[in-house]
Design a protein around this nucleic acid. Structure first.
Lengths: 225, 225
DNA sequence: TATTCTATATATAACTA
DNA sequence: TTAGTTATATATAGAAT
């Protein structure tokens, strides 16, 4: 191959190794190309140098993926199998968990109870009693907080109203006929404060079809007044 | 390359093409091997003949998969991307669903209620009330069914007992002292039928720590008597 | 580093058996 | 078919650039 027979072993001088790599890489690429054309073959050649650089040749008649699919088919070894399997396993676990969760929800919804024995049913019932109690408490807490908020709003509205009223009263001394208008304004403002809040309260459940028992609601309305 | 310059184009004679393929295949394999050793490179060479036969060379320092991973990394084109992406998408959807289901369960357990407004809380409460009612009904149904079963068992036990008693009574005419024993046996048999069933009843909930209200239980005990 | 230059080693097309 | 021979074309090591 050159000036004197060479033995095939790692070239220790890195410069020489790099030069040889360039030359031989070109040579083998050419060979691959010739093989492709002369013999009608499909060739995939990938070379990675020790520095990590990658060169490849693929016959124009094919693609890297096609060659690899054939490779997997021929060797019977799916290179991505293990990766796939892990993902699939994960997927299955999630599906299983999912279905368990759904079943738990159905049972907590009073459906799909056939698998449960008396003891389990009692446990579930007690658990649900406790849970519904928690929800009820939270509901009251929420409505209580809201009530406080609206109370404060009404107070501040009333205060503003009073200030306004006092301002008008001061003006009365100059204009005695203004009082009627003021009083009408004051009344409608109060109505707005109360009525407005009530309107809001009723709109809290705009799409609730069955208003049935309204105790939470009623107490909200009362505490506003 | 041989006796006369050859031009690189498909060898039409299939025999010659096949011969050339064999020789050149060996040649390029050798080159790949030499490149691997001399230059410390990682080479993957796959050749598929026009007849579909596959030959490969892979540097001993690597595997086909490693080379391919690097290839994909270098080209930025993941051959399996679309497949992976679908799986990953699926996985993420499942995870999301899962987390929603868990949240629903927590809420149905009276936890994690902060996100719910008054209206939602009322809906949840009503739903849970209905659900717990269904569970309760199922519980009664299950215990009712069990009760029926035990009733029948007791009846058949009693019948067997009566038959036995009658048989003993027939024997009395020959042996007047046997009656005492019989009566004692009869009593303990009745006790066994009731008591045994009660024992079973109490064992229905062996690990239930809080027996609290026992109305389902009590009615079972009563209907046995 | 990468290319070019050459002397030589290799590869291989055509031939042979 | 496959394997060995041989004349030549190619590839390439080492040196120079």
């Amino acid at each position: 191959m050159g000036r004197g027979k060479i033995e095939i072993k790692r070239i220790e001088n890195s410069t020489n190794r790099q030069v040889t790599y360039s030359k031989r890489r070109a040579g083998i690429m050419k060979k691959a190309q010739e093989l492709t054309v002369l013999c009608d073959a499909q060739v995939s050649l990938i070379m990675i140098s020790s520095t990590g650089k990658l060169f490849e040749f693929t016959s124009p008649s094919t693609t890297t993926k096609t060659v690899y699919d054939r490779y997997q088919q021929a060797t019977g070894f799916n290179l991505w199998q293990s990766h796939y399997e892990k993902m699939q396993e994960n997927l299955n676990k999630l599906k299983e968990t999912n279905s368990k969760l759904r079943k738990e929800i159905r049972q907590r919804n009073g459906e799909d109870l056939n698998d449960l024995n008396f003891q389990q049913l009692r446990g579930l019932e007690q658990n649900m009693d406790k849970s519904v109690e928690r929800v009820r408490n939270r509901k009251f807490h929420v409505i209580g907080t809201q009530t406080e908020t609206y109370k404060k709003k009404v107070k501040s509205l009333e205060e503003a109203q009073n200030n306004l009223l006092r301002a008008f009263e001061g003006r009365d001394e100059d204009c005695p006929y203004a009082l009627v208008d003021q009083e009408r304004d004051y009344q409608s403002a109060i109505e707005l404060a109360n009525g407005g809040s009530h309107i809001f309260a009723f709109r809290l459940q705009p799409s609730q079809p069955n208003l049935g028992d309204d105790e939470g609601y009623a107490s909200y309305g009362l505490s506003l007044a």
